[in-house]
Every structure is written in C-alpha cells, then in structure tokens.
Design a protein around this nucleic acid. Structure first.
Lengths: 121, 121
DNA sequence: CGGAATCCATTTGGATACTG
DNA sequence: CAGTATCCAAATGGATTCCG
C-alpha cells in the first residue's frame, strides 16, 4: 500500500499498526513491559516467528523498545517508546469500536466471536 | 488475521479498516457523499478494480452505502452509514497521528512524503 | 460511467523443526 | 528462553482490457 501512504496520513497509521497481532501486542505493552514468551502467551495463538517479525517492525517504526539482557537463560523485554505511548488513546478507541462492532453484530456475517476486554481494564 | 480477530477487538477494527485506500476513502466520505469516479480522483492513484473492492468490503462491513441510480449515463453514489459515522473521531485521530509521525520523521526510513491535510479541513 | 474479467507479483501470516 | 531457518498457502494490491 506504499502508494496510499504517500497520499494520506491515515494510511501511514494503518501501515504501522495494520499487522496481525500488532495492536494486540501494543495493547498488552500499554499495561506493562513484557518479556517475549510472556507477551506471546498474552497476545494469543501466535507463532514465535510471526510475533518476532511484528515486534521487529514495531521496533523499526519506533513504537516499541527491545531490551536484551545478557543472561542465561536469555531474557528479552519489550516495552513502549514515548511514541508508542501516544497510541494509547487510539488503541483504546479502536478497541472500543471493535468491541461495539462485535456487540452490535446483526450484520452480514464477517467477524464473530467475543472478548469483552478493554484497554483500561 | 482471522485468529487475531477472535482474540482481540482492536484487531477487528484493523481488519475492517486495514486495506489500502480504505481509510482515505472513508475520510473523503466523512465530508460528503461522492460518486465513484469522483471518489476515485479524490482518493488518489487507485485503480477502479481495487477501489471497487475496498468499497464493497466497507459496504459488507456496514461502513458505507452504495446507491445506484438507474440513469444513463450510470451514477453510483457512496456515503457513510451511521456506523461509518462513528469512525469520524478515529479517522481524525489516525490522521493526526500519521501526520505527526511523518512530521517527526527522524526515523529509520519507512514512510516518506508529506500531506498536511486533516479531516476537518 | 462504473464497473467486471483476467492475469500476475508481492506481501503476509503460518506450520514445523532446529539452535545459541 | 528467545528466537532463526525453511517452506508454504492464501490474501492483497495492481495493470490491462473489455462491457452494459
């Protein structure tokens, strides 16, 4: 969607946040720092390979920080950057909108399932 | 990203809004109803095939309405539904965040280009 | 005018197995 | 523990051409 990015700022936001599990990861990191395996369990049934890539992209985009501790067993912690923190209200809004969307679900039948969770819980 | 959707509401929002040009189209429709060609020009260098698909998906998801006028030459108008209207603040927030992201650009080098446009302009 | 049809390249997410 | 390597399937975006 490179072409769209050069035309409209909203597409930039979507480009940065639009991956599978990305927003869920950010949502978890809003609450507190997580280490990899911990974050993985919190996010859902995501494979390590995929989660790693999402996190690396978020890191590249300046949303999360990756801290490696030279210990054994290895420990890697992920946390939000200042820029990542600016996503808080957006994540909350999207989360609420998504929940409402699922809730009001009387529609054509995309999306189903439920999760009453909210950001500030 | 079907798996993620069943776990977290924010992913639902991303799933609905995450296509190329989708948010840009919604952003245009917030201001007023557009007919196809008009919307196409307003959105950017998008091919009819792609824009049509994006709009159909938004229609399926209850975000936009497609009205066909039995005239010649044919006229098709797109507008936001009530549910689509609830995206206004989110679009505005994403737009502002994206613009700020581009603006503060001291980053690694994804996204470049500019567009000072905002929703309420 | 507003698409639909066809075809194609890339990107994306995922399963599985292995490693420092 | 926190990945990486390899391979794969599906979805996504796009170019081009044609139609009612």
């Amino acid at each position: 969607m490179a072409r769209a990015i050069e035309v409209c700022p909203v597409e930039v936001a979507i480009a940065v946040l639009g991956g599978a599990w990305k927003m869920t990861a950010v949502k978890q990191l809003i609450e507190r720092t997580h280490r990899f395996g911990e974050l993985r369990r919190a996010v859902g049934p995501v494979t390590p390979r995929v989660l790693t890539r999402q996190l690396r992209e978020l890191e590249t985009d300046g949303i999360v920080t990756r801290t490696v501790y030279a210990e054994v067993p290895p420990r890697v912690e992920y946390s939000l950057t200042e820029r990542g923190r600016t996503l808080e209200p957006i994540v909350a809004a999207l989360d609420a909108w998504g929940a409402d969307y699922l809730d009001a679900d009387g529609m054509t039948g995309r999306a189903s399932g439920s999760d009453p969770g909210a950001v500030g819980e």
